[in-house]
Computed example of a mutant assay.
Amino acid sequence: MMTSDTNFIEFALGIKDSNLIFRGYFYKFIRLIKYRVYEFTLIYPDNVCPECHQRQLVKFGFSEVNTKFTADDASHPVILRIHKQRVRCKNCQHTQLAQSPIVQKYCHIANKVRNKVIMSLQDDRTLDCIANDNNISPSTVNRYLDQSRAIAPLIKQELPINMALDEFRGVNRQLHFICIDNDGNHKIQAILPDRYKRTIENYFLSFPLQERARVKTISMDLNSYYQEIARRLFPNAQIIIDRFHVVAMLTRAFNQYRAQVMKRFEKTSRNYRL
């Protein structure tokens, strides 16, 4: 493959590593899914042993690694098949494998995929949807959510004028507290590690009273201690109960009353069937 073709492929994939040498590409079916596979050779960049610092490294074969990469079409996911060069020091017998900045050591998912997932977590999308778009598992998306602090810092300088409070089931099926800006953009204000009352209070008490007094409305479900926290910590805020929960409560009450009435009739009667 000519150098111009190598540069073109690296430009199309957004790869910036001079030690990666493009070898070719092909299609491969893996579990009935058609993958685009780009094949590279990753050469070891130096001749100095990282252990004894002697210039006595010799080539010691290659190790083939498949790395998941970003794709513009989710129906044809991309894999980088990288043949990493292995070297051995003739002085201390230490072996070393070539590494690339496009993927972390011991990881088979490119950094671009991780960054794309973190950006997608800021949108109003499900974890399964994000996982399918990036050809990874929902548990991997959950792990990125748990590791990243860039999505929702625990402390911000100011609170939104209109807030919404809720909880969601996150890592290890644990319930987490979430607070978002309710002014149409639905940006995440905070994600707390649990939904305990003390944790929520400590977070909001980190803001001065003058800042908490700016909050005008707080939307929530029928959780009783959410209402108690809102009344005590936000003196000027109006509490708004989400109409979904009101309708759901009325529906459950109606169904309970309907079942009580139905049981008054014989099971074989026309009124019972109606």
Rank of each mutant, 00 (worst) to 15 (best):
V78H: 03
N255E: 12
P50Y: 02
Y226E: 14
C92N: 04
Q96H: 04
A74D: 05
Y44S: 02
E167A: 14
A230F: 01
I191N: 03
L233C: 15
K105S: 12
L175R: 09
A248C: 12
N135T: 03
R231I: 02
E211F: 01
I161D: 01
R31I: 11
A237S: 04
F62S: 01
I79D: 01
S224V: 06
R143L: 15
A230T: 03
D123N: 13
Y106W: 11
M1W: 11
D46G: 01
Y272G: 02
A248T: 13
L145C: 00
Q210Y: 14
A150D: 14
D133S: 06
H83M: 12
T70G: 00
P193G: 08
H76G: 00
E201V: 05
Y225I: 06
Q99G: 07
Y106L: 15
R264Y: 09
Y225F: 15
R198T: 09
R36F: 08
H94D: 03
N135E: 02
Y38N: 07
I33K: 15
M249H: 04
A12C: 10
D181L: 07
V37C: 13
L20H: 04
T217M: 10
P153C: 15
F234Y: 07
P193I: 10
K90D: 08
R81F: 00
R169K: 11
S219N: 12
N47W: 08
R270C: 04
A248W: 11
Q104N: 12
D73H: 14
K156F: 00
N182R: 13
K59T: 09
S269E: 08
D46F: 00
A71Q: 09
Y35W: 11
T268F: 11
D242N: 04
